[in-house]
Each structure stands twice: as structure tokens, then as C-alpha cells.
Amino acid sequence: MKSLNVVSVTILLLFSAALLFLADLALGSVHIPFRHLLLLLVGGDSGNEIWANIFYHFRLPRAIAAIMVGAALGISGLQMQTLFKNPLAGPFVLGISSGASLGVALLVLASFSFGGMLIGAGLNKWMVVLAACIGAIIVFMIVLALSFRVRESMSLLIIGIMVASITGAAVGALQFFSNAQQIQIFLIWTLGSLGGLTWSTHQVFIPVVLTGISIAFVMFKPLNALLLGENYAQSLGINIKRSRILIIISTSMLAGAVTAFCGPIAFIGLAVPHITRLVINTSDHKKLLPAVAGMGVILMLICDILSQIPGREEVLPINIVTSLVGAPVVIWIIMRKKVVKNAFS
């Protein structure tokens, strides 16, 4: 496949992202005329209190969340695929999300048994975030420590899956001893949601994601060297240990923040790097990192738009959309082109 040049890809990605961002803001159960929407976007007064309220407090933070989540998951997935030289790698496979799930499960399901004050007082959003973060970091550190011993990406992948099944079992046990209400709260969390992010959570979420992305961008030289494998990277003067730790910190921040604030969003982190490679057909992280971020934004905005059910108040949980829409797309891409095989052989 002929790769498009850098300028046209950049313009294409930015244009699509901008268009989808507007579409995401425009769509919803309440119709806001497009002219008024643009007015609201630039800070003008649309003359309608309800529209302004919906726009500023629901649609805008939600669309920004979609942008952040898309970029974060795309970049963390790419970093994992390069670090472990495995097309199946992604934050979801290596245990971050399952760790976060266990953290939240412990909070939601176990806390009830010790007094039930949390749910009674209305589950604090920040406590969910904290629990997810702690769970994600602990599990990822375990997987990382084991990775130093096995040195083989395939073994590590299996370890990741095993860790996920251990945490899954723990979550299952917690569910067994919980009541229906707790289980429902937990289940809804696992289905993911962009709606939980408000301006107050954005104040934490956005800086964490931007820091994670910045680390990834600073790391693109070691990431490129790692394409040759660790021995070659070392022979080029790259400090392997430091690079690996920085990549892992960046990934933990990105995937951890997303899981903590939006739940375990499946599929995007794994799929976006593959879709991007189909478009720009390169392994050079200097081009790949921004492109993956852009593609993640686009895909996430599309998923958010599709999650709006026409004529109804509710939106579909984001995980249902990402998997239902995205997975067939990836299968189609993989069947059509040997992108994965070429990039990883």
C-alpha cells in the first residue's frame, strides 16, 4: 500500500478529528441548532439557558474526555506493542485494567461488608478513582517484575493473561458475597463511561494524560531503537532499564487514568496502532506517535457518537460500542492487509 505523505496525513487526521468533535457536540437527546452550538463553543451567548447548561456541563466535558481517552489509549497500546514486540499487547492484556477492576471491586463490593457507609453516602467518585489507580499500579508492577525474569514477550503475555484471570477470580469471589445492588454498580463501572468526567475530574485527568503523553513523546528515540530488540538498542547506547521503566510509567499513567475515570475501555488500545499502521505504514515512532494519538481521538469520537441512542435519554455504555463496532473493523483490516505480519516480522 502506498503510504500517504506526512502533510496530507496530518491534515486529514486534524480535519476528521475537528469534524467529529463538532458532530459529537451536536448530537444528543436535546437538539441544539448548529449555529448556536458554534456560538457556545466560542464562548458566546446562545440566549438559551438549558442549551448552555447541556453544552457546558455535559457535552463539552464529555467530548474532551473522548479526545483524551482516545489519545491516551492509542499511545499506551503502541508503547506496549513496541516494548514487548507483540501485536497482541495492549494495556488491557497486560493487567492494568484488571488490576483497576480489582481495586474498584474491593471498594464497591468489599466495603459494603465493612459497614456499608460508602454506598450509603453515595459512592465517592474520587475513591473509585483512587482504588482503580492503586489496583492498576500494583498489578502492573507485578507483571513488570516478572517480565524482568522471563525476558520473552510471549511468556509475559501469558503471565498478563494469568494475572487477569487471578484478579478476575478475586472479583468473582467478591461478587459472590455481594448483593445485587453492589454488583450492578460494579457491572456498570466495568462497561465504561465517558459521562463520569466533569470539569472537576478533568482537572486531574487531563494533566495526568498530558504528562503520560509527553513522556511517550520524549521516549520516541528509545522506542525506535527498541524496534531492533533490546540487544541492538543497548549497542546504540540506549539505557534499557531506564527506558523500560519510563515507558511503563507513561503507560501506567495513561491506561490507569483512563480506567480509573472511565472504566476499563476495551479494544481501543490494541486496535488503534494497527489501524494507524495501515494508514501510514511505518514503524518510525516520530511519525507513529502523533498519528496514533490522532487516530485514537477519531475512533473514540466515533464510538461516542454511536453510543447516543436516537430519541432516548440514555447512552450505550462505551465498552459495548468500542467492541461491537471496532472489533469487526479490525478483523476486516487484518484480513485485508498483512499490516500486522509486516510490522511484527
Partner: peptide, 27 residues
């Protein structure tokens, strides 16, 4: 001062020849 050619497989089929050679300039 020292460069190597190893038996390790290079998992970067998407790089072109020029890009791979240019990687040699990393230090």
C-alpha cells in the same frame, strides 16, 4: 566506538532500508 550485527530477529518490518541504516546514527 563499537557496533554490532547480531543474530537477533528485527521485529520492524515496516521500517525501510534507509530508516534502519539511519538508526545507526543514534549515538
Amino acid at each position: 566506538q563499537i557496533s554490532v550485527v547480531l543474530t537477533d530477529r528485527v521485529n520492524a518490518g515496516n521500517l525501510n532500508v534507509y530508516e534502519l541504516i539511519a538508526l545507526g546514527r543514534y549515538p
